[in-house]
Computed example of a mutant assay.
Amino acid sequence: MSTGDKIHNTGDKLKGIVKETVGKAVGNERLEAEGKADQAKGDLKQAGEHVKDAFKG
Rank of each mutant, 00 (worst) to 15 (best):
G4A: 07
G4N: 12
D5Y: 07
K6W: 06
H8F: 14
H8V: 13
N9K: 08
N9H: 10
N9R: 02
T10A: 15
T10Y: 13
T10R: 12
G11R: 05
G11F: 06
D12V: 00
D12H: 12
K13P: 01
K13E: 09
L14H: 05
L14I: 15
K15A: 10
G16L: 05
G16E: 01
I17A: 08
I17C: 03
K19W: 04
K19F: 13
E20A: 15
T21M: 14
V22K: 08
G23I: 05
G23V: 04
G23F: 01
G23R: 01
K24I: 14
K24M: 03
A25D: 11
A25R: 07
A25T: 08
V26C: 09
V26P: 03
V26E: 12
V26Q: 09
V26L: 09
G27V: 04
G27T: 04
N28E: 04
N28D: 14
E29I: 09
E29G: 03
L31Y: 01
E32T: 07
E32H: 12
E32R: 12
A33Q: 11
A33I: 02
A33S: 10
E34Q: 15
E34T: 06
E34C: 10
E34A: 05
G35P: 00
G35E: 00
G35D: 00
K36G: 08
K36F: 06
K36W: 04
A37Q: 06
D38K: 14
D38A: 12
Q39Y: 07
A40E: 11
K41T: 08
K41E: 12
K41H: 13
G42E: 00
G42W: 00
L44S: 13
L44V: 14
L44E: 12
L44N: 11
L44D: 11
K45W: 03
K45V: 00
K45H: 11
Q46V: 06
Q46Y: 05
Q46P: 00
Q46G: 01
A47K: 09
A47N: 05
G48C: 01
G48Q: 07
E49V: 13
V51G: 02
V51C: 05
V51A: 10
K52Y: 03
